[in-house]
């Protein structure tokens, strides 16, 4: 089953996936990413290594669509998830064709994946930073409204001002499940896991 993370740049999509993998008891992630020459490259990374290589605290780091395969046993059921980590989408029409291509690829996954995790940085609500929720997030929430496999992850709940942000998001997005999460304090991971298991079974 495919799961796609989608959202603005630097909202924490990649770290969410890595930490979720850790939470599910995995010790390494298997990554498939384009190697730049039209082929696929498969990498095995320990989770610490993945955190170091795949993310940064300030600048958006994911520049291509990456696929992580999450395989785990829950009880007696084997669960196989293909997690698609997409680069963040900026508001507005990108000037570079390559970037527009990436946006199109990302949106294609939005249509195809049965599980959509829409990541929002609630601590940035109202700010001018690129990760601040904007028209794109609102549009995504509207898109997700009628889908059973759609969830909004209100990320960075550990940061200052996130509570107000969460409230604003809850007011603005109607009829979609919103899950407050922090990748630092692991808040909300239990619910996220439950949701995933529910979707998979």
């Amino acid at each position: 089953m495919h799961l796609v993370t989608i959202g603005k740049p630097n909202v924490g999509k990649t770290l969410l996936l890595i930490n979720l993998a850790a939470y599910l008891g995995l010790s390494e992630v298997r990554l498939e990413m384009p190697d730049g020459e039209g082929g696929q490259q498969v990498k095995r990374l320990s989770l610490d290594r993945a955190r170091r290589d795949l993310m940064s605290w300030s600048a958006p780091r994911t520049r291509a669509i990456q696929t992580a395969i999450i395989e785990t046993l829950v009880g007696r059921q084997r669960i196989r998830l293909v997690a698609i980590d997409t680069p963040g989408i900026h508001e507005g029409i990108a000037s570079h064709p390559d970037q527009r291509h990436l946006v199109a690829l990302t949106l294609e996954w939005l249509i195809r994946a049965p599980m959509i995790v829409h990541v929002v940085d609630v601590s940035a609500v109202g700010s001018q930073r690129p990760e601040a929720p904007g028209p794109l997030d609102l549009a995504l929430a509207q898109y997700g409204q009628r889908l059973p496999g759609y969830i909004v992850v209100a990320n960075k709940m550990d940061k200052l001002g996130s509570l107000e942000g969460l409230r604003a998001i809850r007011d603005a997005y109607h009829e979609v499940p919103i899950l407050p999460v922090s990748c630092i304090t692991r808040r909300g991971f239990r619910d996220l896991k439950q949701w995933m298991l529910h979707m998979v079974t």
Partner: peptide, 24 residues
């Protein structure tokens, strides 16, 4: 069609948020 929308995104005729609304 969804394909057309994605194509328009690549051509720079649609902003991402508009595209998502069309997709919906």
């Amino acid at each position: 069609s969804p394909e057309e929308i994605l194509h328009w995104v690549e051509q720079g005729r649609l902003a991402p948020d508009e595209a998502v609304l069309w997709l919906a």
